[in-house]
């Protein structure tokens, strides 16, 4: 793995190693930043990309996504440990069996579906204008400016509606995680 072998996006990755490692550290990887950087390298090597318009920005996004992946799996593991340690849940059952049984995919499906319904309700509860702003922005990928023009409202109203909607979803996430 030397700079001489690398082409395209991998060359950009190597040339910006220090910046990306610094980003990963700040993003929460801490001491593991170098490991995550290696993981990023491996992902790029095993999942070749097509031509990329802004390679450095693409790499930051990929690094950012990788960190989000890590965060999710750590959180899942923490929730699982929490469930196993729950004495009430374990009372009438064989502790070892519970510890070995992974959360089934059916349960995960149900949980995900319920969380989605709660998120949908939280967005809907903001009222039609804010909910529409959010859905157009997040689901349809429409720019804030275009949403403002479409709904005949100011850009700052769109901005504040989006903040409200994201605020409600973050609040919900925190409630779910706190369980």
């Amino acid at each position: 793995m030397t700079a001489g072998d690398a082409q395209g996006i991998e060359a950009v990755l190597l040339a910006n190693r220090d910046r990306l490692v610094r980003f990963l550290e700040a993003r929460g990887a801490g001491d593991a930043a170098e490991d995550v950087f290696q993981e990023l390298w491996m992902k790029l090597a095993t999942h070749p990309t097509g031509p990329v318009g802004q390679p450095l920005s693409y790499l930051y996004r990929a690094a950012n996504n990788l960190m989000l992946d890590r965060y999710r799996s750590l959180r899942q593991a923490a929730l699982r440990d929490h469930a196993w340690a729950d004495p009430d849940g374990a009372q009438d059952r064989d502790d070892a069996a519970i510890a070995q049984s992974p959360v089934t995919s059916v349960e995960r499906t149900l949980i995900a579906r319920e969380e989605l319904a709660r998120a949908d309700a939280a967005v809907t509860a903001l009222g039609p204008r804010a909910a529409t702003c959010f859905r157009r922005f997040r689901l349809d990928g429409i720019s804030q400016k275009a949403i403002a023009a479409e709904l005949g409202i100011s850009l700052s109203t769109v901005e504040s509606d989006l903040r409200k909607a994201y605020g409600a979803l973050v609040e919900l996430r925190r409630q779910i995680d706190a369980v």
Partner: peptide, 23 residues
């Protein structure tokens, strides 16, 4: 059959995603 939503879909989204080439 509706498969696992949130977590699973997001796991795919947070993989290596790109923003394509603009020529």
């Amino acid at each position: 059959i509706w498969l696992a939503g949130g977590a699973a879909a997001a796991a795919a989204l947070v993989g290596i995603v790109g923003y394509g080439a603009v020529d």
